[in-house]
Design a protein around this nucleic acid. Structure first.
Lengths: 258, 258
DNA sequence: TAGAGTCAAGTGGACAGGCCACTATGACTG
DNA sequence: CAGTCATAGTGGCCTGTCCACTTGACTCTA
């Protein structure tokens, strides 16, 4: 029961104190209290401001750091992240949602075609169950888990562990890249949801054991995901991001023509 | 300079201790030490195991929590977040050379097609230089490095970091899997070499900016790699491996038909 | 014998205080 | 005005502590 400025909700799935502090700081950033590139108040000052311990502030800072929102520099301070630098050497941090989804389009399309050639009845049934889970869970964590399961089950239906592993890695790239997570959060906030029809079309192609139809359905599905990424950017962006999205559209059109 | 089990790199962009602990735990999860749904060792035990403070372990757990990898439950423990149920086998150790090469066939075929659509003159020249390196270096480490560079340069020519990353990961799977390494050693001992003609065909398709020809050439190249894997098995194998190779041939024929 | 209640141990959440190492800034000197 | 140095301020990591929740073992009663 700390005497902090946050309401004490209780144990059951109550957000932890560091999460409350982190969210309060995110709100301040979004409200323009701290501009990108600006330095946040020092840890000790934030601890006093929020009436929590310095360790709790440090935990909140770690949460912001993992989310790609802030960056702590020893001896200097904590800074609001500018737009993520483009030319760093860490691929995971550099990989945007468009790139991840385009890679998924190429690779999961082929995985779906191969799966359609050899899929078992058990795997068909498993996918059917996942479709029901998806229908029952939209826009929540269970739905996202079912979405992931759906795609990875298709990859596993190829009977090839390397293919399944690659699809898992591409899914996990979404969580490892702060840029990705932020954009998928934006897409969700803009009301974008996994389209049940798309998944059903994929499922039907697999059930019919039609490789070409499975590839086409997976391509269409991920084309729409790419569209929603670009749409989310447009609905939430400054002018620069708009022009980037526009040039992305042209580039997407060119790349999708193959 | 704590006496922890991690090497002290130094201040300049050195990863923080909590990051090292978090990554070590992620590696353990990926290696199957902790299955999805399993409980991790308690914070105090992990602190002893990694020879860091409990606060550092808590910070690492927050990083894993934000990344969606683990979930801390007060009074109960820290649990690996559920994922789609998988065999308890570790995928990397289980992945054979056939699976890796088949995955490469699917994915690098598509990468080559996309690269053919948008490749630059610089990348064409770089590939030309790598072809010369390949011609000058057969059956040695420099040749293998040039082979890897050739394929990764094609992936990078797509302009998509996620695609390039996946191709790198597939290449590196060869080294991480003892089964893979042994088989590629066998292929080399049986006199199997990367075919220069194949690489030249791929290069010419890229130079002509012909996506279909690039996909076809990459498929043919990797089909021959698969053939050589099977041939090496046959020339070096016990009877069981022969029947496996024979059934693999039938399976390969079925899978390649899509 | 099974179920309910109790209690202790084990667990994570949060805190206080401390020290180290790095960075930034200001004062001083040449 | 540039360079140097000292100091204050900063984040990184630590130790120790206490609180609140969960879990499992044990006991008692029907």
């Amino acid at each position: 029961m700390p005497n902090s400025k946050f309401t004490d909700i209780g144990p059951h799935n109550a957000p932890k104190l560091y999460q409350k502090v982190a969210n309060a700081i995110v709100a301040s950033i979004r409200n323009g209290v701290y501009a990108p590139g600006a330095r946040l108040p020092p840890e000790r000052d934030l601890a006093q401001e929020f009436d929590v311990s310095r360790a709790t502030v440090r935990e909140a800072m770690i949460a912001l750091e993992i989310r790609g929102i802030a960056e702590a520099r020893r001896g200097s301070g904590i800074y609001v992240v500018d737009a993520p630098p483009k030319d760093t050497n860490t691929p995971e941090l550099d990989i945007g949602p468009f790139e991840v989804t385009e890679a998924r389009r190429l690779f999961e399309g082929e995985a779906a075609a191969l799966a359609a050639a050899i899929i078992t009845e058990e795997e068909i049934e498993k996918l059917s169950g996942l479709l029901q889970e998806l229908a029952a869970n939209t826009d929540n964590e269970a739905g996202e888990k079912a979405d992931r399961n759906f795609h990875i089950t298709i990859a596993e239906a190829t009977g090839n562990s390397a293919i399944a592993r690659v699809v898992e890695i591409l899914w996990d790239m979404r969580y490892e890249s702060p840029m990705c997570r932020e954009m998928f959060d934006r897409a969700r906030n803009a009301g974008v949801q996994p389209r049940h029809d798309d998944h059903l079309t994929i499922f039907n192609a697999l059930k019919s054991r039609d490789p070409k139809a499975a590839r086409r359905a997976m391509h269409s599905h991920l084309d729409r995901v790419i569209d929603s990424i670009l749409a989310a950017t447009e609905t939430d962006a400054v002018e620069k991001a708009r022009s980037e999205a526009a040039s992305k559209r042209m580039e997407v059109a060119r790349r999708s023509a193959i």
